Simulated assay, not measured.
Amino acid sequence: MSQAILYLLKPKFKDPIHGNADFFCPQCVPIEGLLTMFPDMCQNLDIRYVDFARPRGEMGIYVGDEQSCPQLILPNGDDTHSVKLSHEGLGKVRRIEDPKDVHCYLIARFGLPKPHP
């Protein structure tokens, strides 16, 4: 694995617990915004959209049952931007699962402008 893998929920999904309504993931929206505003970043990420239902594709290989989204899987461990944000995944991978930490990591790693206070 050479690129970080970014797992996001597909933009439109159903949650059978809540009837037949369509939903989107409010935690994924800020990450989607960054990807839209700074599309060059996408070339350096392996972005994978997964279904709401679990298991969520190959995600379990890296995180076991901790399949929240968004989630960033770091190839072969941490880099200087992820050291304080990441947690152990399965095998040698590290992962960032808190949406705010994923956001902070992407801004730092790709040298993006900081959000206005």
Rank of each mutant, 00 (worst) to 15 (best):
Ser2Leu: 13
Val29Arg: 05
Pro55Gly: 06
Pro75Met: 10
Ser82Met: 04
Gly89Tyr: 00
Pro113Ile: 08
Asp22His: 09
Leu112Ile: 07
Gly19Arg: 07
Glu66Ala: 10
Ile96Pro: 01
Gly91Pro: 01
Asp101Glu: 12
Lys84Asn: 14
Val83Arg: 09
Gly60Pro: 00
Phe38Glu: 04
Pro16Phe: 13
Gln67Glu: 12
Asp46Tyr: 04
Gly33Ser: 12
Lys100Phe: 14
Leu34Thr: 05
Tyr62Phe: 15
Arg48Ala: 07
Pro11Ala: 10
Val102Leu: 04
Ala4His: 03
Leu74Met: 08
Asp15Phe: 09
Lys92Asn: 15
Pro26Gly: 11
Gln43Phe: 02
Asn76Thr: 07
Lys84Val: 12
Lys10Leu: 08
Ile73Ser: 00
Pro70Leu: 01
Asn76Gln: 14
Gly89Phe: 00
Ala4Asp: 03
Asp65Cys: 11
Leu74His: 01
Phe23Ala: 09
Leu8Ile: 07
Glu88Ala: 12
Leu9Asp: 00
Val29Glu: 12
Asp51Gly: 05
Pro70Phe: 02
Arg95Ser: 03
Leu85Ile: 03
Tyr105Met: 04
Gln67Ile: 01
Cys25Pro: 00
Gly77Ser: 09
Thr36Ser: 13
Glu32Met: 13
Pro55Asp: 05
Pro39Arg: 08
Asp46Glu: 15
Glu88Lys: 11
Arg94His: 07
Pro70Val: 05
Pro70Tyr: 01
Pro117Glu: 15
Arg54Lys: 15
Leu6Met: 10
Gln3Ile: 08
Ile107Thr: 05
Leu74Phe: 05
Lys12Cys: 10
Thr36Lys: 13
Cys25Trp: 00
Asp15Thr: 09
Gln43Ser: 14
Met37Ser: 12
Leu9Cys: 06
Gly111Met: 06
Asp78His: 04
Tyr49Val: 04
Arg94Asp: 02
Arg94Gly: 03
Ile31Cys: 03
Gly111Glu: 04
Ser82Asn: 05
Gln27Ile: 04
Pro30Ala: 09
Pro11Val: 07
Leu74Asp: 01
Gly111Arg: 04
Met37Gly: 07
Leu90Lys: 14
Ile107Trp: 02
Asp22Lys: 08
Met41Glu: 06
Val93Trp: 02
Asp101Gly: 02
Cys42Gly: 08
Phe24Trp: 14
Phe24Glu: 12
Asp22Ser: 12
Leu35Phe: 10
His87Asn: 08
Lys12His: 11
Leu8Ala: 05
Leu9Pro: 01
Ala4Leu: 01
Tyr62Asn: 02
Arg54Asn: 06
Asp78Trp: 02
Asp51Tyr: 06
Asp101Ser: 11
Gln3Phe: 14
Thr36Ile: 12
Lys100Val: 14
Val83Pro: 00
Gln27Asp: 14
Glu32Arg: 11
Leu72Arg: 01
Asp98Ala: 09
His87Ile: 06
Lys12Glu: 14
Asp15Lys: 11
Leu74Asn: 01
Pro70His: 01
Ala21Phe: 11
Leu85Ser: 03
Ala53Leu: 09
Met37Asp: 12
Pro26Thr: 13
Asp22Trp: 12
Gly19Met: 07
Arg95Met: 13
His18Lys: 15
Lys10Arg: 13
Lys114Thr: 10
Glu88Asn: 15
Asp22Leu: 13
Tyr62Trp: 15
Leu9Lys: 00
